[in-house]
Nucleic acid binder design. Structure first.
Lengths: 179, 179, 179, 179
DNA sequence: GATGAATGAGGATTCATTCAT
DNA sequence: CATGAATGAATCCTCATTCAT
């Protein structure tokens, strides 16, 4: 890389690295510091400076990617019934996310799912709205609900939509308050 | 015509390799031909002869490990009600299996879940028994059912039993035939 | 005219760097500008400003560490006979120094021993006192004497004292003026 | 590297690696697996196979290089008086060896000198011959004697011969049996 | 003067894969 | 069939060094 302003775009670098890492993860399910550095057009050392451990990098990517999932919730709740909001979120957003982020899931060494707090927060908001509306049983951990959706990681490339709908149907019956 | 000693050796080798690979997978979630060869006290070439591609090896390990899961089903169905058989299988056998085989799941690059045909067969037997008994809705793919249990991969080390039970409760409500 | 705070900071920095470098050297036998900067809580650039080349840094550390070795000589000569002063200095001070500064010796790429002028000065003072007292032969380079003690770098961790004494006995016989 | 007989020259490889390592050590005082592999025209992996740890490599080089030092002793004792044999060995062989093997000494983390058993054996043969001849005191460890020669590592490039002679003079007086 | 971000060369180490024996 | 030596690409990571602020 030839001469170029350095200090100026430290933040820019962070972003470039995250983008590169995200694509690597999507594509290969694996993060190689060297590969990321190359793709981000940055020295390896820079990647290390920003993200000393692979975990740091993966979690940063996760946070960045999951952002949208979290942000979309309020608008869904505003425009749909609680049930519709839940179904739409799962099928229209979460499913697609998990489909394409399989790499992420593997990289994050399964079992850390509960740590995905922002995603859990999003799901919890939907759950609560439904509990308030009397459409989801009040006894039910958000974690359990999340886990019932864990199968979304194993969707098929070409039929994912139908599969996600089938799963959400099953889950909805499982959580629906039928009093 | 006696079995040639050659052949005996060969079979023994295959077994040793599978054992070694299985432990590697359990421990590190990764399989290295070289490491497996060393652990199995076999030349690398031998591993290649038996399992030309990594996938072959992983699937063979999987088959070997899943065997028990499949074999236990008939006895469960014989000794329990269909519902009990299902719950017991999931919590008592499948959950533990998925808990400890996370490495396997990662290695098998998610999305291959449907290929786990023998496991699907086992689950299907349980499903069918419940459909016959009128306890599970007849409309319901085995795949969908399997997917609803996908969260078992994300069980917590120390509370896995309670978590598995919570999940199976949710799922049971979701699949139960309440006509 | 008060000392400018700038200047005070600068001196402080130099000292912090030397302390950090000294510990690095003692521990790992290696000096990394980056590591030293971090340990000294100083920017890398600052280390470079003070010590442009690694050699500068190492020699500065050496000088700092060897100080005590030099300073102790007069008092030894004042309180002991020349022979005793020599033996005590070698066994009680030099040996311990070389024991613990092996890192330094390696870093200073052997062959630079003659450059250790302040140490040579110290040794020379002892030699001269003995020559004056007629206890050491007058023909004898300080360098040669120093070299005869070079084995102190190879003392054993747990028996160093006995070993140093055995060496100094040998050397004393070798330099003693037995006319 | 193009096609070439493999298995055939495993031993040849070992030799090439040792030669390369020896030169690296001589030149830079450092052993880099990569550099050695390149110089030996061998894959890095091959170097690792032959010498799993750097220590293994260094010791092998040492053994190889020290061979001559050991082998020459009998002939020296046959052709010279014990005293002459000792002096010749030290000045004519050991000094030159230590001069050029400084890298080795640093690499072998000082303090391991006593491990150089074959060199100690050589020195011991010379010592014993002198003891038998009544020219060296019988009380005197070979280790101590070795240590008194430790300064040979710090010889000057251009005056090494004179320096070595001065040292051996000093040492000889120190060990000579003057009864 | 001080700081610390960025760079990238370089050294360690592992592994898939081939192939002579 | 089995063995295991050899290869070298690929990863990891650390550092020396520069230079914008």
């Amino acid at each position: 890389m030839p001469v170029s302003p350095r200090r100026a775009d430290t933040r820019r670098n962070r972003e470039r690295i995250l983008v590169a890492a995200s694509e690597s993860l999507k594509r290969t399910g694996v993060v190689s510091y060297n590969a990321i550095a190359k793709r981000a057009e940055v020295g390896v050392g820079t990647v290390y400076r920003h993200f000393p451990a692979p975990e740091d990098l993966i979690l940063a990517v996760y946070d960045r990617e999951v952002q949208h999932l979290v942000e979309v919730v309020p608008s869904l709740l505003a425009r749909h019934s609680p049930e519709e909001a839940f179904r739409t979120w799962v099928v229209g957003h979460l499913a697609h996310y998990m489909m394409t982020k399989r790499g992420l899931s593997a990289a994050l060494r399964a079992g850390d799912l509960p740590k995905y707090t922002s995603m859990l927060d999003a799901l919890d908001a939907l759950r609560q709205a439904n509990v308030d509306a009397g459409t989801i049983r009040p006894d039910l951990t958000t974690e359990t609900l999340m886990r019932s959706l864990g199968g979304l990681f194993f969707l098929t490339e070409d039929r994912w939509q139908a599969e996600a709908e089938a799963l959400v149907d099953l889950v909805w019956r499982g959580v629906h308050d039928s009093r």
